[in-house]
Design a binder for these strands. Structure first.
Lengths: 255, 255
DNA sequence: CGGGTAATTGACCCGGGTCAACAGCAGTGG
DNA sequence: CCACTGCTGTTGACCCGGGTCAATTACCCG
């Protein structure tokens, strides 16, 4: 999977992701990568990138590492509402809102491209095919959030964790971050608990069940899924909401 | 509140909603209302407007009545992932996806404007201020979905229902659909259960607690909130995620 | 007045939470 | 090289919020 990943490949995760939807032209790809390379920020593990209440200023893009959005209640309860894996963008146009209604934090050390509002607007104005692709990205983000709503509302702990693991595996796969049937998986059991609305203790027990059933191997930050079909089955995982099947292929660049 | 609502007022709910963000020009308002009036569809209560797996064709806008998005699991478990109240739009650009990953159904009889893809694209191309406003709408929709994630993951049944009632009240208020401190509230206890991930039995018991505490009155399709501050308090409701405070006022039309 | 949907109640149960102790392991500083 | 610290994972005993099942009771609406 990784080993040494050069800067080119890191920027590449976004084009890789977008090309699950539509093929970009050399020009689109170049402009996107140039933009992403402009302001790269490196942040250590477990730090807030932006906090609820802050004024959003720029769009950002995770080039390397994992991050999450989270919300908290006044008494400290905490819910991770989504994960960012390499290639994920935060909300386009977020800067039209006055203040953030959630926080974003790194999980591992991350490398993030921050795209200034004006640059971003210009990008959209000049590159219609990118606009479509970024819309697709946004729609997928929304679909994931709805799927999480279903996950939290209806699935049992066992199904819920299985489902989350399926999703993260497939999202990593869609940006070429797999190694055989394994991915790099930096979440702790506490992270999983905060994302699934369970306690860390119960996550632990549920993971043991999943391991016992031969459905997952999870150790030293590596997740292995020996039989994806079996895991999808118990999770009732249907990947339609990720819209990965090159649905925008009629928009492909032909150069 | 209602009684007889003429056609003008029904279309008006969207402009009303948008003007919680930015003031539109006469021209913007006119174009939006003309568009909405183009293809009005009336649908009875409890019918699917579009089903998971269908190809999305148009954007639609709820002019009158309530609807919901929902997702189901293969074994029949059902989660309502969001509600539409008058003035709510379904996802812009949804038509770039090949198939729906969720269904949309009416709750009451609804009057819906279906805006064809091409008309909608044209609207966006010609009216930049509307584009901003519709972006705002989309960002709020996403923020609501995240708040629901928090709701399902962290709040107790009592807090969760209190929170949902706050949200729906305030959303109705933002389109001028209140009557004193009451709103028209067509959801059954089963609907509430499907939206909160609880059972109808438990929703019933929880509503009784809320009534006993004097926090809500709910009878014959009318929800009354005698003391909003008290309800917000137990729900830990923070309305920041609805971004209603005319955040885009710097974009206001000045005609 | 009959038939169907929505609300309510009671008895009982279970998935997942709580609390507390402990084990493994990585980093870090002496 | 080892002791110390702190985080992550694991286990056991016990408990409770909310689910399940099944029966009633309103409430519409024609």
């Amino acid at each position: 999977m990784t080993g040494t990943v050069d800067r080119y490949e890191m920027v590449n995760v976004l084009t890789r992701r977008i090309e699950a939807f539509t093929r970009l032209s050399q020009d689109d790809r170049a402009i996107l990568e140039r933009m992403a390379r402009r302001t790269i920020r490196e942040v250590g593990a477990r730090r807030d990138l932006i906090r609820e209440g802050d004024a959003p200023r720029s769009v950002f893009l995770v080039l390397d590492g994992w991050a999450c959005r989270y919300k908290t209640l006044p008494d400290g309860r905490r819910q991770i509402v989504s994960f960012f894996v390499p290639g994920d963008l935060c909300d386009l146009h977020i800067y039209i809102l006055r203040e953030m209604d959630h926080s974003i934090a790194s999980i591992t050390p991350v490398r993030v491209a921050e795209i200034a509002r004006d640059d971003f607007e210009k990008l959209l104005a000049d590159h219609p095919r990118l606009v479509q692709a970024l819309w697709w990205d946004e729609l997928v983000t929304m679909a994931i959030q709805r799927e999480w709503t279903l996950n939290l509302g209806q699935r049992t702990a066992f199904e819920r964790i299985a489902h989350l693991l399926c999703e993260l595996y497939i999202r990593m796969q869609s940006v070429g971050q797999t190694n055989g049937n394994s991915i790099n998986f930096p979440l702790t059991q506490v992270d999983l608990a905060d994302a699934t609305g369970l306690t860390a203790v119960h996550v632990n027990r549920t993971l043991q069940e999943l391991r016992k059933g031969g459905l997952v191997e999870l150790q030293s930050k590596t997740l292995t899924i020996p039989n994806m079909d079996a895991l999808k089955d118990v999770a009732m995982f249907n990947d339609n909401y990720l819209h990965l099947d090159r649905e925008g292929r009629h928009l492909d660049a032909n150069d």
